[in-house]
Computed example of a mutant assay.
Amino acid sequence: MSEWNVNDYEITEPVRLVDARGRLDPASIGWTRHQLHDTDGVGRGWYGWGRNKRWEYWGIVTPTHIFALTIGALDYANVRQVWVLDRANLTTIDAFEISPLSRGVSLTGTHGAGVNTSRGRTIELRFEDSDAGTRLIARTPRVQVDLMAETRAGHEAMGLASPHSRLLVDYTVKDVDRPTRGTITIDGVVHDATGFAVLDHARSRGPYRTDWNWGAAVGEVNGKRIGINLGGGGADGLRNGISHTGVTIEGRVHKIPTVLDWEFDPSNWMMPWRMTTERMDLTFTPFYDRYARTNLLIIRSTTHQCFGTFTGRVQTDEGEWLTIDGLEGWAEDVHNRW
């Protein structure tokens, strides 16, 4: 897979992820600071049917709550979920639905191209992009969310197209440090939702088995706003040698070109984790483990998503080391069959 090593290749002009026949365009392999990949071809037609995986995942952290809003679509099923953690007492609310094929879901072909919606029996989600940011609306019998995940002038987000083969390719956008304002209402009680949001956007064709590690953290360091995206774990990242790790400082992406090494104890998820590479050395201390397991015939998933704080240091493109102390976020270990 050395022909696909794209760590240092930054795409600066618009490109299609797949060509008119639905096959991977080699010119699309690389990373971006802004949305330049046209991914409209993913999920259209029969080429690659059954392997298309499209989703919008928003993780939001506020002083009182952590919550996640998910719209996911495979070719043969789609899912929607609203999950909430009350930080004061560590109680949760989890609303989850699955529907066959594309029933009730509408996803844009390309990131930032409009509105993503999913509507089921008891859950309704709407993510609407604009120049000001993304308005996130969610409704379940117990939870209502209405907030804006803001973008500021000059804001960058790391997009990455990394291949498995000429047919299978992952395209993701990890958009960290989106300030939030709005509300989350739980059982009729309104809570302020000022905090930060992180987007995991995907328009991919992946293998049936997908394993990964991912993490994110946001906060202030030396008076600068910083967002960290931790990727590159799991079998695929290690095999391909492709880094999904980067740091956003005052809205500018500093991509780290080497794969991140993850160390954690799968027998005790609440023990500290370690993430290291040439320009990063972080320790993550969890305070809550969100464990989820799904077994629905061909769709199987096991997830440990831990929330906590990060300490350590990261290095900028210019060589400056920034000390990290108490940045909030999460780290996860995921194994999917879908």
Rank of each mutant, 00 (worst) to 15 (best):
D200F: 04
R239A: 14
V145G: 02
M270Q: 08
L101F: 13
V84H: 02
M271Q: 15
A138T: 03
V42S: 07
S130W: 08
E13K: 13
R274S: 13
I66A: 09
D19E: 00
V190C: 08
L322Y: 04
I228W: 02
L230H: 03
V42P: 01
P266H: 11
G227I: 07
T151M: 12
M270W: 01
E124R: 14
T302S: 14
T92M: 14
G215E: 10
G154K: 01
N213C: 09
M271F: 12
G308L: 10
H304Y: 11
M275A: 10
E128I: 07
L74V: 05
I256N: 02
V42Y: 08
L125A: 00
F264G: 00
H155Y: 12
G48E: 04
I228C: 00
V82K: 03
R23H: 15
L74C: 02
D19Q: 02
G159D: 03
N229H: 11
L107N: 03
R44L: 06
H111I: 05
P26F: 07
G159S: 05
H164R: 13
R178V: 02
G237R: 11
L24F: 06
D333S: 11
R44K: 12
V61H: 06
A77H: 09
F96T: 08
L296R: 14
G48P: 08
G329L: 04
G233P: 02
T245Y: 03
T303E: 11
K255M: 13
Y47K: 12
G237F: 11
T70S: 09
Y57D: 10
M1I: 12
G329Q: 04
R205K: 12
G120H: 04
L160Y: 00
D281R: 10
Y208N: 15
T210V: 10
I98P: 01
E220Y: 00
G50A: 10
L24I: 10
G120L: 03
G59M: 11
A88M: 09
R209V: 12
S301A: 11
H155W: 13
A132L: 10
G22E: 04
R103S: 12
R119T: 09
S2T: 10
H164D: 15
G159W: 01
E97L: 02
H335Y: 13
G329F: 02
A216T: 15
H65R: 03
V189F: 05
Y288C: 09
L24P: 00
S99W: 11
H155R: 13
M271E: 15
M270I: 04
E97W: 00
Q144D: 13
M158D: 01
R103V: 10
P207T: 06
S130G: 15
R51I: 10
L296W: 13
Y208K: 15
T180C: 08
T108R: 12
L199V: 14
G43E: 08
T91W: 09
S162H: 09
T180R: 06
F284Y: 11
P286M: 06
M158T: 08
E150M: 15
W4V: 10
V84P: 00
F67A: 04
R279P: 00
W46Q: 14
G231E: 00
I324R: 06
D175C: 01
G133R: 03
A113C: 03
R23T: 12
T210P: 00
V15D: 07
H191S: 07
P26K: 06
G188F: 06
S301E: 07
G231L: 01
A202Q: 04
R119L: 00
I228Q: 00
F196W: 14
N222Q: 13
W4H: 13
T12R: 15
K174N: 14
